[in-house]
Nucleic acid binder design. Structure first.
Lengths: 111, 111
DNA sequence: TTGACGTGCAATGCAATGGTTGCACCAGTG
DNA sequence: CACTGGTGCAACCATTGCATTGCACGTCAA
């Protein structure tokens, strides 16, 4: 479970995608990929409230895409790159399987 | 735009994820990765109506994840593996960048 | 041509989601 | 201690999204 070749498991993929499928959340995640930050900090240069940001961060955390780090009285969030890598790996594996199978079917249909 | 190394562009990623972030849609997509099928066929062995399935398929089509193929009076949908591959590639690139940057920051903070 | 099947479109109901504000609480700092 | 700043929790509202049913249209087969 700690190797770099681990996968998320097909069951959890939709959940992860649901977390990534919101513009604000995606923007926040990208921002956290730059450097860790707190909900208050993130909300500062954004048109939405601190609570709204915190809610998004919680969703990302539940999806395993972000981790928290206590720093005094503030909670800093950081993106977990390895999770995204695992996601990418799973996707690619699926895609390859489909491509192969469907190519076979298509060839059979045309032949 | 037709090579196997193309990417989707960061802007369209959340949209694609939103399409993938629904359980029913994900299940349908996996089913289409097995073999092409029509909305009616797909709805047959599923607890939801044909119209609901059709709506999901439309979402997937708009996200560029499936393509249609007219066969007589029926519309068959097939999964587009290359799209998923492109998505995987984009994700992996982002993840790598984050991992590298955040590692640097973390090292600086601990040192 | 008639009947049956596959689609598409529209109106509707209900649940989930994303946003807000207000308040209470804890942890550092003067 | 008093104050300030960052969190967390709760109530509430508006919008979106998923599913439904009903109907109309086109197309293939008997």
């Amino acid at each position: 479970m700690t190797t770099s070749t681990e996968t998320l498991g097909v069951e959890s993929l939709p959940a992860a995608f649901a977390a990534l499928g919101d513009d604000t959340r995606w923007e926040l995640l990208q921002r956290l990929g730059t450097a860790p930050a707190s909900a208050t900090t993130l909300a500062a240069d954004r048109p939405i409230s601190r609570q709204a940001v915190a809610r998004h961060l919680e969703v990302l955390r539940e999806a395993g895409l972000v981790e928290t780090e206590i720093h005094g009285r503030e909670v800093r969030y950081r993106a977990i790159g390895s999770r995204l890598s695992a996601l990418a790996r799973d996707l690619d594996l699926l895609a390859q399987g489909w491509e192969r199978r469907l190519r076979t079917i298509k060839a059979a249909a045309e032949g």
